[in-house]
Amino acid sequence: MPKITVTVNGTQHTHEVEGRLLLVHYLRDVLGLTGTHVGCDTSSCGACTIHLNGNAVKSCSMLAAQADGATITTIEGLASGDELHPLQVGFKEEHGLQCGFCTPGMIMCAADLLNRNPNPTEQEIREGLEGNICRCTGYHNIVRAVQHAAGQLEAAS
């Protein structure tokens, strides 16, 4: 069995894993980080989105073994202590979530978007989130949440 060492939300972990173990199941079942969700089985919905070495990836479409050596951030690790990430604030302030199931993946994808494009247009936000399905909000307030966060980040910089 492959042995992997990963740093997740700042903590290093080493485990022997089955070759077939998906990264999302490693995070949820082995590390107990259940904020990363599984919404489909075709890499389509984005609920499992995390950051792997700083980039948004779908953790349902990777093996845990592929992540060996990686630095991973999940939704649980996005805030700095008690201080929420601007996107977390934006989603709350703009009512960017309802049932909350897609939210962790949506926020992690949006964080990648803002890392690359700190001041996106509405269209760029919509295109940037094309890999994440939300069934509750109609995306209207998700777009506004990302805009809210972009504004906060700009004000802070």
Partner: peptide, 9 residues
């Protein structure tokens, strides 16, 4: 191609 996450990997 795909979406951001797919293009990253």
């Amino acid at each position: 191609i795909g979406d951001t996450q797919v293009r990253n990997v």
